[in-house]
Structure formats: C-alpha cells, structure tokens
C-alpha cells in the first residue's frame, strides 16, 4: 500500500506540508488589510460603548479622529501621524502636542482605530496553522507602535481576520480581540465589530463597532499639524 504523500509530508514536515499551498505571510497580511480597509483614503464611523468617533484615514499612518459622542468632547479632534499625536483646542485655534497616553476610551486604544493597516507596521511570519486558520505572528517593524507584537488568526478560506492577541515584546498577552459582525460594507464583506478584552482582567472589555465606511479624499492640510483643525 502506498501511503498518501501528504500524510508522509505531514509526519516529516508538519508545517511545511500544510503551508505549501498557502501564500507567504506578508501577502496574507496584505489581504487581511484589504478586508479591513476599503481604500487608501476613507472615512469610518465607529462606536465604542457610549462614545462615537469619525475617523478620517489616509494611507498607513495618518488619521484624524473626530469625537461625535460624548458631546463634551466635541471639537477636541485628534491628529495622529505615525506615533505622534496632536489635539486641536478650539479656544486656542491650534493643535497642541499630546502624549500617546491620551487614548480614546476603555480597552480600545488609538491604534485600534488609527492603525488599520498591519502590513505597513509589522513583519509577519506564520506561527502555526490548522485546517481553518493561519496563525500569523506580527512583530513591530519599529518602536512606538501601540502593540509590539500581535498574533492573528486568519481564515484560510477568505483571508478574513478571526481573532487576535496583542502582546508585549516579551510575549505577555495584554489584550484579546475577536473580529465579528461580518457584513457588506463599502463594497465587500468586512468585520464590523471588534470585541476587545483585557488579558489581565476579563471584566474589562470594549466593543468597537464600525457603523460605516466610505472611500473619501481629504485635503493634504488635514493631516498636517499646521493645517489640521482650522
């Protein structure tokens, strides 16, 4: 009896055998990004608990977050360029530099809204895989990112993100997230709900709901501290 070649391969090279037909991890990650981002430049409305935001996203690292709710924070828009952040102060009529600790709300960090493209920020390797998912290990390409390491489960059938773990550089899990609520939005099926919970205290969790996404072009001045908010 001639053994199934695939079984032999799995016994000798368990990962390689399964990974053989797969894409390389960077390509997988780019496909994941394409599911999470409708275009290079777009507007996204997000709800996190009682708070609502409008995020204007340009490329990999430029985001303006406008608070819609709660009403008390309206007008205090945030500009993020890479890992730098400014808050527009209406009374001063200018943007003021703020530190990254000025996070948005609850377990959701600025990076959960502003850094929607992982491929630009992280180097990917396939950590493991099973019949349904690839498990990608993402390592930050540079310092200062909201999360230094991410482990992402990606569905093999359509490259959609399933869940993720956000880790410290040493590998300690900070948060866990699930990508849910897949439905048509901006031309294709995308996750519209991100359930984030603290790995330290499971009672601390946030739900990030994407209410809408739409491709949109923005003036260059919007993403510059000297033009932002005026």
């Amino acid at each position: 009896m001639i053994p199934d070649v695939r079984i032999l391969l799995m016994l000798v090279f368990p990962v390689a055998a399964i990974a053989a037909p797969s894409l390389n991890p960077e390509a997988i990650l780019r496909k994941v990004d394409a599911i999470r981002n409708p275009s290079e430049s777009y507007e996204m409305r997000v709800r996190i608990g009682e708070s609502r935001f409008m995020a204007m996203i340009q490329g990999a690292n430029r985001t303006v977050v406008r608070t819609l709710e709660p009403a008390r924070d309206r007008g205090r828009d945030l500009l993020m360029i890479g890992e730098e952040m400014w808050a527009y102060i209406p009374n001063l009529k200018r943007a003021v530099r703020v530190s990254l600790s000025q996070k948005l709300t609850g377990q959701a960090a600025n990076g959960d809204i502003s850094r929607m493209r992982w491929a630009e920020d992280y180097e990917a390797t396939i950590e493991s895989e099973d019949e349904g998912n690839w498990v990608l290990a993402l390592g930050a390409r540079r310092k200062g990112l909201t999360y230094e390491r991410i482990r992402v489960w990606v569905a093999r059938k359509d490259h959609s993100p399933v869940r993720a773990e956000y880790l410290t550089a040493a590998g300690k899990i900070l948060k866990r997230a699930r990508f849910e609520g897949y439905r048509m939005m901006a031309g294709r099926v995308r996750p519209t709900r991100l359930e984030i919970e603290s790995a330290v205290n499971a009672s601390e969790h946030s739900t990030l709901e994407v209410e809408s996404m739409s491709p949109r072009s923005f003036p260059v001045s919007l993403f510059n501290p000297q033009g932002f908010g005026e």
């Binding site: 530099r97 703020v98 530190s99 600790s101």
Partner: peptide, 12 residues
C-alpha cells in the same frame, strides 16, 4: 518645538 518622550511626556 515639541516632542513626545515615551508615551507619557511632552516637552515644548
């Protein structure tokens, strides 16, 4: 000039 130092400090 302004600069964020770590994620808690800003010098201006």
């Amino acid at each position: 000039a302004s600069q964020a130092v770590s994620d808690r400090w800003v010098v201006r």
